[in-house]
Design a binder for these strands. Structure first.
Lengths: 204, 204
DNA sequence: GTCTATAGAATGATAGAC
DNA sequence: GTCTATCATTCTATAGAC
């Protein structure tokens, strides 16, 4: 794309941002301040760019949101699709979905955080919430199938169980940090332990 | 400062709102739009009042926030204090804290929702977050004590376990509705089942 | 008449548009 | 950079139930 050459700036020789870098900073800022509360001017200021330079990379603020949400949702949906593609008991599929979802969450922490804080204030947001709802329904169906197999207890409603499990998973965005001392793979294991076997010790 | 006691006082003056009604509508609106994004004018408009009428009931917008957060936090802290007051194994205390927290959450849904969405943008908010942090630490200590008793598995870190359990509990604000079809007492029971015994059936 | 809930107008501060 | 809209807040006064 064209370089803005008409402006005299002090950032001579400084490499510009590419699309992905702008997106990453934008999502970070959205998570810090909230999407609505973040103006394009805020983002430009954080990047050290002008607004017009930003619009070289993206056509609108909402496009940044849409791309980030696509990253989060397609990651979660891919986990579910992979689990449903293999021939296996529902309870094994459910295990794969749970640990896979934790993996997406830790790998794509910022986009998933953005997704989980949506309130449905625009068409893009409601569309994303609808995709979450479909995802939830598919997982609920999986829980119900595992109940029919006798591998998931039936004294908890499948819908409630699904919401509780994903409540546990999703809450990880509130405290997990990639540079922290919790390993993402061990975290997925811990979530499986608590969700499936519970905190009480099992006598073997 | 006075704590409302819920008695229906015959209102004097022209028909209008009392302090509790204003507070309830305010917290509702804060949860819909976000605290920062809600102006006093928005609230006045929702109530069908002028802004100055609001200031008869409350000295500031932040006071509304502070009272709501006090309701949520004192409810949670009371649950913990009651659990720690009785002489009982840590694992029984933990059970009481978990089901008690679900009870506070369903009883005081709106204030707790507001608490859980805080980002720490002001002194009032950071103070509330600090009280949450202390609460978390005390629960973590309880989990650790229950581990020492052999009643909680030790292959999951106490801090991680506490965060996962409260992630599950707190996520209830995202979908629980008082007029819905999920009974709050049964919900507390379900949370205990999933958290302590897990979704896998236990052989008796 | 007194108490409570209310309205109207105005202030200073600030964020965003231009 | 200036201008304007909007913000939270305050002061003064009124309207209605007991």
């Amino acid at each position: 794309m064209t370089v803005h050459s008409g402006e005299t700036t002090a950032r001579r020789g400084r490499p510009g941002y590419d699309r992905d870098q702008v997106l990453a900073v934008a999502v970070q800022l959205f998570n810090e301040q909230g999407y609505d509360a973040t103006s394009v001017a805020d983002l430009a200021s954080r990047l050290g760019l002008t607004k017009s330079a930003l619009y070289h990379h993206f056509s609108s603020k909402e496009e940044l949101l849409a791309i980030a949400l696509e990253t989060a949702l397609s990651g979660l949906e891919a986990v579910l699709d992979r689990a449903l593609a293999v021939e296996a008991p529902a309870s094994d599929r459910l295990t794969a979905v749970i640990s896979g979802a934790v993996g997406v969450l830790t790998d794509e922490l910022a986009p998933v955080t953005l997704l989980l804080r949506l309130r449905g204030n625009s068409a893009v947001e409601t569309a994303a919430l609808e995709r979450r709802r479909v995802f939830d329904q598919q997982v609920t169906a999986l829980v119900r199938a595992a109940q029919d197999e006798g591998r998931i207890r039936t004294d908890v409603d499948a819908g409630v169980a699904t919401r509780l499990i994903f409540g546990m998973i999703n809450s990880v965005v509130e405290w997990y940090r990639p540079d922290g001392r919790v390993d993402p793979d061990l975290l997925a294991q811990d979530v499986l332990r608590v969700a499936l076997d519970g905190l009480h010790p099992r006598e073997q």
